[in-house]
Design a protein around this nucleic acid. Structure first.
Lengths: 347, 347
DNA sequence: ACCCGGAACGTTAGCGGTAACGCACGGGCT
DNA sequence: AGCCCGTGCGTTACCGCTAACGTTCCGGGT
């Protein structure tokens, strides 16, 4: 990469203006300038002159000095672990946007989920910088446990769904239940679940939604797998599955898992959805162009990020630990699901 | 999302330790503590006692105060525009990692490429925070032009490839040339290029590599399109193409564009690679599971991010505007490319 | 024994903001 | 007229760190 670079290029003033230089230019005390910035009432004459001076000198407040003085910066830290996955990505985007519109910058700190030295360092880094708070984006359980050991000196909020136990019938309202219901409505009775890593709360909830929906409607669970989120894991799940139970519906916990499954099916000459139906989850944009187009659930991940940031800011305001409810998602029915077929033909 | 939250929970000390509290605990002056932290030489006795005190009080330097005093924070800002695309994503990951390992935090600022008020705000935000510098990740031309108008008061570096004009035969070394050569080697003579937005330098260079490679080898360019990066644009390009010229090789400027093209071909019963070959570019992981698996170029995007950050830090050190050369990428031949077929059959 | 110089350390003054206090001024009340 | 209180403003201190300068102390050279 060639690189175009630019030195600072001093603007009109040799050095950036401060409230003192502005005060001098306006013929008032620096405190009056501070008040002006805060929006306090000034005598009309002064107000105007300060305003002029601010404009003339192109004054901009120094966040660093402000933070030192108020002991609170306009920054929110975000811990992210699997930044390459689609869902965390989108959550982060939502969080960043919400933070920005509340006047904060979101500092993203990618932490290696394997390496707990990295986490320790990240915590120390956050502690040094007088953050207003920290949001933790979709951590797995081990991460969360580690995090509790470290002394994070600022308020923090974990972005996480409510924990849905086997007795908690809110699981039936989880968006993941929608896609299972959709398949049930089409007449499917034999299901197979390709799951993600069970150390993720999000995965366990999807699984719970899957189980409860099957149970509620008297359908058969032909099996569940677990593994990573990517396409490779989806392929692997299909390859290692003992096909004796002949499910007609394959319900994947992510779109990428579904892609891997689709690939295996293509490879083995299984027709989708004629022989088996396949569904994904997440709603990544490309799924419309998979072959066949993938039925999925478009989850509003940005909303989760937004809610988390807002919860953090509310925590400042003195609210208790907030509960913002379930993920929100919409079924996107496409060609990969249809009426039940004969299942995967014997080789 | 339910949210687990945690208040700060005062650690051992009611408030975080400062160099003054450490100094008092160690029976020295705060300046001695500062020197200890800087690594200056101390009398053995003092050194030990300061070390003890630091440990006992769990002292961590306050970056904010340090930044105010030195007028330089350990932060680098990153402007990103299309954070949803894969390439900027990976570049950013590389940049973040490089920044971290140099002791900096990368502040990511997503800017809406359409909205120049957003850019203006972002610049103001960066100016307020005493950043060590700013990297601009793969901007399109209009962005770059706007950016030059704003007064960014810190050093900044744009991540960008060298500009490859029609006369510059370095284009033949661009990784994009690899995939074109690969197809030529297979015997293809008639090519069609599905391009991205020409306002992107990265796109123009790919296009130039495409053209020069064809020219050099005496092959036929049956057409070029331009549009967005996503699968929808790839599909659209195929749909609107007048197929009179009957290319046998379709060369897409991104994997997602290729996915859209594959979809259109499937939809129209065109066999890949038997009738036409299709290639992508970028090397996103899922391409191995497209149907058929997509030939692509795995580009080392993180490297670009890393280089950009290092260039910025070098700029501080007083180096001139650095040139770090071309993108680096490796051909990944897969099943979507093969010997030339009959082209797209007439409908 | 004297002087000199450098190492180690303390003191003071900033960096650019905010917060707390105090003072002058003016209008409404008794 | 005298008192009180609220408003607008200036002065001073402080946030936690670094930089510049001053002081002390010690060893070596003559």
């Amino acid at each position: 990469m060639a690189i175009e670079a630019s030195a600072p290029e001093g603007g009109p003033p040799g050095r950036p203006a401060t409230i003192y230089t502005v005060a001098e230019a306006a013929g008032v005390s620096h405190q009056t300038v501070s008040r002006y910035l805060k929006g306090d009432s000034l005598r009309p004459g002064n107000r105007e002159r300060v305003e002029q001076a601010v404009k003339a000198l192109d004054y901009q407040v120094n966040d660093v000095a402000q933070a030192l003085s108020t002991k609170k910066s306009h920054r929110i830290g975000a811990f992210v672990f699997d930044i390459d996955d689609w869902a965390p990505q989108r959550i982060l985007a939502g969080a960043a946007k919400a933070a920005r519109s509340a006047g904060y910058i979101l500092d993203i700190l990618r932490v290696d989920p394997e390496d707990n030295v990295s986490l320790r360092n990240a915590v120390r880094l956050m502690n040094r910088t007088m953050l207003a708070g920290v949001v933790v984006i979709s951590p797995s359980d081990p991460i969360l446990r580690l995090l509790q050991l470290e002394r994070l000196r600022v308020p923090w909020v974990v972005e996480a769904e409510p924990v849905l136990g086997p007795d908690d019938d809110r699981a039936l309202q989880h968006p993941f239940a929608r896609v299972v219901s959709h398949l049930a409505d089409l007449g499917h009775e034999r299901f197979f679940h390709i799951g993600g890593p069970v150390s993720w709360l999000a995965e366990r909830n999807r699984r719970e939604a899957y189980r409860q929906t099957l149970a509620r409607r008297g359908l058969t669970n032909c099996g569940e797998t677990q593994g990573l989120w990517g396409a490779a894991a989806g392929y692997e799940a299909m390859a290692s599955y003992p096909h004796a139970d002949a499910p007609t519906a394959i319900v994947a916990a992510s779109d990428q898992l579904a892609l891997g499954a689709l690939f295996w099916l293509q490879e083995h000459g299984v027709r989708v959805p004629d022989d088996v139906s396949v569904s994904g989850y997440d709603g990544i944009a490309d799924t419309a162009y998979y072959w066949p187009p993938l039925t999925t659930v478009a989850v509003d991940f940005p909303r989760m990020g937004r809610n988390t940031v807002q919860a953090l800011l509310a925590l400042e305001g003195g609210g208790g630990p907030p509960d913002l409810g379930m993920p929100v998602g919409e079924l996107v029915p496409r060609a990969s699901t249809g009426r039940p077929g004969g299942g995967i033909p014997a080789p």
